[in-house]
Simulated scan of single mutants.
Amino acid sequence: MSLITDTHSRLADTDAELLPVLAERWSPRGYDASAVVDEAVLTTVLEAARWSPSASNSQPARFIVTRRGSANFATIHANLMGFNQAWADSASVLIASVAEVPIDPETNLPKESPWTRYDVGQAVAHLSIQAQAEGLHTHQLGGFEGQALAEAFNLAANQVIVTITTLGVLGDASTLTPELLEREIAPRTRKPLTELLLVND
Rank of each mutant, 00 (worst) to 15 (best):
E17D: 15
L127T: 03
A35T: 07
D38M: 14
L19S: 10
L196V: 04
S92W: 00
E182R: 09
A16S: 11
A173T: 07
E195P: 02
A152F: 07
L3M: 15
G143C: 09
E47F: 11
D13A: 15
L136F: 03
V41K: 03
L141K: 06
V36I: 14
P20E: 15
L18M: 15
D119P: 05
G135V: 14
E17C: 15
G171K: 00
N154Y: 05
D32E: 14
T177A: 13
G142V: 05
I95R: 00
F153K: 05
P192R: 03
E134H: 06
A78K: 12
V124Q: 03
G146A: 08
P105Y: 08
S174W: 03
R10H: 12
S128A: 15
G135M: 08
A186T: 06
T7R: 10
F73K: 02
Q130T: 07
R183N: 09
V36H: 08
K111L: 11
I129Y: 00
A23H: 09
E47Y: 13
G135Y: 12
A156T: 09
A148C: 02
Y31F: 15
I164V: 14
T175H: 10
A123E: 04
G82Q: 15
L141I: 14
P178N: 11
V120C: 04
A173C: 09
R67H: 07
G142W: 03
S113E: 05
R67E: 05
A78W: 11
V36S: 08
L180T: 01
G143K: 00
L22V: 13
D172Q: 00
I64P: 06
Q159L: 09
S56W: 09
D89K: 10
Q59Y: 05
E47H: 11
N108K: 12
V101A: 07
K111Y: 08
T189R: 15
L196M: 12
R188W: 10
A131D: 01
